[in-house]
C-alpha cells in the first residue's frame, strides 16, 4: 500500500515539475498541464483530543481549476482548508499527521518557511475581516510584508488589484478612508484583492459568500470564474447550487472523510454512495 502510493507520488511530482516549467510561459496550453496537481495531500490526519477531525485524507488539487470541498457543517472542510496554509498552527490542540505537498515540498516539514508557503495561498474567510486600516493600506499591507516599499509600485498594484475585483470605481475617491466603512460585500471583495496583492498561486475560500447578500455573492462567484485563468481555487461550501456553478472538481466530505470526488456531472448526476445521494436529496 505504502509502496504503491509513493510510486504514484513520484509520478505526480514529475508531472508537477513539468507543469511548473511550461505553465510559466504558456499557461493552460496543454491538457496535461492543467490537470496536474498543484497540491498533493497524503495520508493526512488531524486530531483534537480524542476526536478525529480528518481521517486519512488523500487528495490531489488540480492546477488552474476550481476545486469545491462540499459537505455538511462540521465535516472537516474548513479544517482541511486551514491546514493547507498552516493556520492550524494557531490551535496547538490540533495534532496533525501526514503530508501536504506544494510543488513537491511538504508544507508541514519543520524547516519549511511558513511565510513563503502562506504567500502562495490567498485566504478568503466566511465573513470579511478587513485589517483595521484604510482601504489603500489593506492592500499595501501584504506588499509591505513582501518588502515592496516603492510608493509608485505600491500605488499601481493597489489600483490593479482593486480593478481585478471590480472595486476600483466604487472606492477610488475614498482610498484612505477606513475599510470598515465599506459594505460587507465590498469588504469581501477588498479581502480578495488584498490576498491577490501578494501574488498567490492558490486561493483558499472558506464559505466566502455565507455572510453576503445574493448580489454580492454573485459578484464573488463571477470573480472566481474569471480568476481560475490565473489561479487555482479551492472553495469550501455547503451550498449545492454554488458548487454546481463553480466547480471543475468536487470533493464530497462527510465526518472527516472523503466519500466521493469527481466532476460536477459525476457528483450530481451519478452519485455512487448512499451518503452523497441522501445529501443531494436533502438539498442543502
Amino acid at each position: 500500500m505504502s509502496n504503491s502510493s509513493t510510486i504514484i507520488d513520484q509520478v505526480q511530482q514529475v508531472n508537477g515539475g513539468e507543469a511548473g516549467a511550461t505553465s510559466g510561459a504558456f499557461p493552460n496550453t496543454s491538457v496535461q498541464t492543467s490537470d496536474s496537481p498543484i497540491l498533493q495531500i497524503r495520508d493526512f490526519n488531524v486530531q483534537a483530543g480524542d476526536t478525529r477531525i480528518l481521517k486519512d485524507i488523500h487528495l490531489d488539487i488540480p492546477k488552474g481549476k476550481i476545486t469545491v470541498l462540499l459537505g455538511p457543517s462540521g465535516c472537516g472542510k474548513t479544517t482541511l482548508l486551514k491546514c493547507l496554509n498552516r493556520l492550524s498552527d494557531l490551535h496547538p490542540s490540533l495534532k496533525v499527521k501526514g503530508q501536504i505537498l506544494i510543488d513537491g515540498e511538504d508544507i508541514f516539514h519543520p524547516t519549511q518557511d511558513l511565510t513563503t508557503i502562506r504567500q502562495k495561498m490567498g485566504l478568503l474567510s466566511q465573513r470579511p475581516f478587513p485589517l483595521p486600516m484604510s482601504i489603500y493600506k489593506n492592500i499595501a499591507y501584504g506588499l509591505k510584508i513582501k518588502g515592496i516599499r516603492d510608493k509608485k509600485v505600491v500605488k499601481e498594484k493597489v489600483e490593479k488589484h482593486l480593478r481585478d475585483v471590480g472595486l476600483w470605481e466604487e472606492v477610488k475617491d475614498r482610498l484612505h478612508g477606513p475599510a470598515a466603512r465599506l459594505s460587507i460585500g465590498q469588504q469581501q471583495r477588498l479581502c480578495l484583492a488584498r490576498g491577490l496583492a501578494v501574488g498567490p498561486e492558490i486561493i483558499l475560500a472558506d464559505e466566502p459568500t455565507s455572510a453576503l447578500d445574493p448580489i454580492s455573492s454573485r459578484k464573488i462567484e463571477e470573480e472566481f470564474l474569471r480568476l481560475k485563468e490565473d489561479y487555482t481555487l479551492i472553495v469550501v461550501t455547503h451550498i449545492l447550487r454554488q458548487a454546481k456553478r463553480l466547480a471543475d472538481h468536487i470533493v464530497f466530505m462527510y465526518f472527516g472523510e472523503i466519500i466521493e470526488q469527481g466532476t460536477p456531472d459525476e457528483i450530481f448526476n451519478h452519485p455512487k454512495s448512499d451518503i452523497l445521494k441522501q445529501y443531494l436529496q436533502s438539498g442543502h
Binding site: 494557531l90 475581516f129 501584504g142 510584508i145 501578494v198
Partner: peptide, 23 residues
C-alpha cells in the same frame, strides 16, 4: 480571523501583533 488574515498574507506572528492586533 483578523490574525489569520494577516498571517495568510505572509506576515510573521510578531508583525501581525505589531501592525494588526495592537492597532
Amino acid at each position: 480571523e483578523l490574525k489569520e488574515a494577516s498571517l495568510s498574507l505572509g506576515a510573521t506572528y510578531w508583525e501581525t501583533i505589531k501592525w494588526v492586533v495592537l492597532k
